[in-house]
Design a protein around this nucleic acid. Structure first.
Lengths: 186, 186
DNA sequence: GTCTATAATACGATAGAC
DNA sequence: GTCTATCGTATTATAGAC
């Protein structure tokens, strides 16, 4: 029987974690593999033992969230396009954003859209993103309704990572974001 | 009397325009001076005759919008914090975004926030941005009101450049964006 | 005002030792 | 699994000719 993957020093996981922090903070292009390696006290070549390319690091960072978004969108597509379903989609999406280290990831996606444009994982994220917004709009939705749906998603994103809201705990920010998102997609 | 600056071939202006297009499309880091020069059929060294550094190009791109935002925020700070004033601020801000080649500029700011973070012009833009959102919130506004104000500004940004809204002219998108922004800052 | 040529440096990625 | 050393290429930026 195969036991759980419990390496004593999970270098691959540490690379992913540091890369995510740096990508979120300063963007993908500006973050070099040398910088990632130095933070871990290893060399660039050691990073290349764990990942074939820089883009592969990015891909593994996106994997979990992409799968969750795909599942959520598929579920939503089978539901009627009612306000109640839209509310449930937003609640489930926010739960998805709350899991694990998703906060820096969603900050990265939100603040580095331009540089993600011509990377395969970024392109897939953009499409999943659009598909999610689509199920939040009634059939033949107006331009205003489409915009409100996009903003509802952005509201949840900002609530998940934004730290410049005065005097609010993460829980308060999350609750406020959900309230605004529900109002936008009502 | 000094006449208007009417050079026959305004290379400096062309550099600014091409740089803005490329920055908006693929981000600041990813856009090289070689790429800008090649689009204009000149060399990198020629670009350096017109601008001392790459960052100086960015600075001149931001100048006009920054001045307009400063003026608008200063005006708003002198008004009472009423819903009517908030509406007028949003209308004036949208007018600001409609002038000249501001659409790619605001797209660039919206989609490359991470890479702009440690560039002086980007930092100034971020602060002007925050100041604008601040005058859109009542005194001691709740976390929800602060988020709504930020989203109102983002709504106008998306309306100014977003091209992925089905079946809508730029005018319709602008009108929809203003309607949503007004609702968010009501 | 634009050019050629180049300096100085960093990047992603690979080879091969240990 | 990590290292040293390096390849090939790109970058920003400068010097100096025309």
């Amino acid at each position: 029987m195969v036991v759980a993957d419990e390496r004593r020093t999970d270098t691959r996981g540490q690379i992913r974690q540091v890369a995510l922090e740096l990508f979120a903070e300063q963007g993908y292009e500006k973050t070099s593999l040398r910088e990632i390696a130095e933070r871990l006290g290893i060399t660039k070549a050691a990073v290349y033992y764990h990942f074939k390319t820089k883009e592969e690091i990015l891909r593994t960072l996106f994997d979990e969230l992409l799968a969750g978004m795909e599942e959520l969108t598929a579920w939503a597509a089978e539901q009627p396009r009612t306000a109640e379903v839209r509310g449930e989609v937003l609640r489930r999406y926010q739960a998805l954003l709350g899991g694990g280290a998703t906060a820096p990831l969603i900050r990265f996606v939100q603040e580095s859209q331009a540089s993600l444009k011509d990377l395969a994982p970024g392109e897939e994220m953009k499409q999943r993103f659009a598909a999610l917004a689509r199920v939040l709009v009634p059939e033949d939705g107006s331009a205003e309704e489409q915009l409100r749906a996009r903003l509802a998603v952005i509201a949840l994103h900002l609530g998940a990572f934004s730290d410049d809201v005065a005097d609010a705990t993460p829980e308060q920010r999350g609750a406020a974001a959900l309230a605004v998102a529900l109002d936008l997609a009502r």
